[in-house]
Design a protein around this nucleic acid. Sequence first.
DNA 1: GTCTATAATACGATAGAC
DNA 2: GTCTATCGTATTATAGAC
Lengths: 193, 193
Amino acid sequence: MGEGNIIITTTATDGRRTDTRDRIRATALEIFSERGWEGATLREIADRLGITRPALYYHFASKEAILDSIHDELARSVDEIIEWAGTQPTGAATRASVLDRLSALMVGQWGPFMHFAQREDDAMRALKGTAAFIKRMNALGDILSPEDTVAARIRARLALDALFMAGARSERLGGTQTERHEEALTIAKQLTR
Amino acid sequence: MGEGNIIITTTATDGRRTDTRDRIRATALEIFSERGWEGATLREIADRLGITRPALYYHFASKEAILDSIHDELARSVDEIIEWAGTQPTGAATRASVLDRLSALMVGQWGPFMHFAQREDDAMRALKGTAAFIKRMNALGDILSPEDTVAARIRARLALDALFMAGARSERLGGTQTERHEEALTIAKQLTR
DNA sequence: GTCTATAATACGATAGAC
DNA sequence: GTCTATCGTATTATAGAC
């Protein structure tokens, strides 16, 4: 809830880490993406960090609090895009720019997490953080629909899917990671034209 | 493995049900679709059927065996489509027919389950049944790609996503269920042209 | 800030009566 | 074919020492 999103590895003078909270979030993001919400265990997060489970509870009150914290960080970036779109005239150019900005997020570390959050949609509707994510995805779907028809809404959702597809594990599509992102972006723009 | 896929409710002369195995599969399909693999519990399946957890074990050896049994039934339908495509000349007309046949599966009871199986892809790679499902989805992706490029493979995957989207919970897209299926099919055909 | 030890709960699965 | 009772193991989470 409001932490910075730049992770800098530091050590105190006695050698103890002082960035454990950020390291927990980074590792949890990996494991949520790999295993899904139910499949991800605090044991695995702790083990991968080389600490014990109780130590996690010093930094976060619950498993859900870790997810919420990760989501808060992503939400700021997505909200920026949504708010920016609100200041622009509706049109194909604005939709293309929104897709450009979203694609940039996917290329970074958010690709696997957005894939996770999207895939867990109904299973996780109960989770506060993810419910908010779904609302943001719906807002993006509305922004990306050129007109108010079922077909346009399906196409807008597919445009988002295209970006997610390139952002997540997608080696089977062939080509380089960069190539996949570029092609997905091109197709997404065609779908929202 | 090898049971019929038509569920007929019958009762023996003393009033006991004789179709519990099929009822378990139908209910499990619902709950897997709603909650995902880890989120689905045998407790909920049993409760919804009005029986106890141990009673499930009379019909299936394990939770995984239930999933495998459901998957076997779907696999026969998907394999029919894949095999039929193999006998046809490659071309836009064949791809459109494959999409028609897949869409017909989605309109039936398989839509939510295909959404489930697709979404659980990496979390469930360990599960025998789902691993086989992923292989079939990859085969369909190949069949639906007009050429051997990254862009074509992304478009083929999005065509499948469009059908899945209409088949699963998708009320937010507006329109009627029939309308959503028709529009999704049209878009899918455009993507694989 | 991290540890050991443990509580409380839920899970999948089994044994054996009926 | 379904039940009651239970086992063994995992989970999230907490208490209190250091």
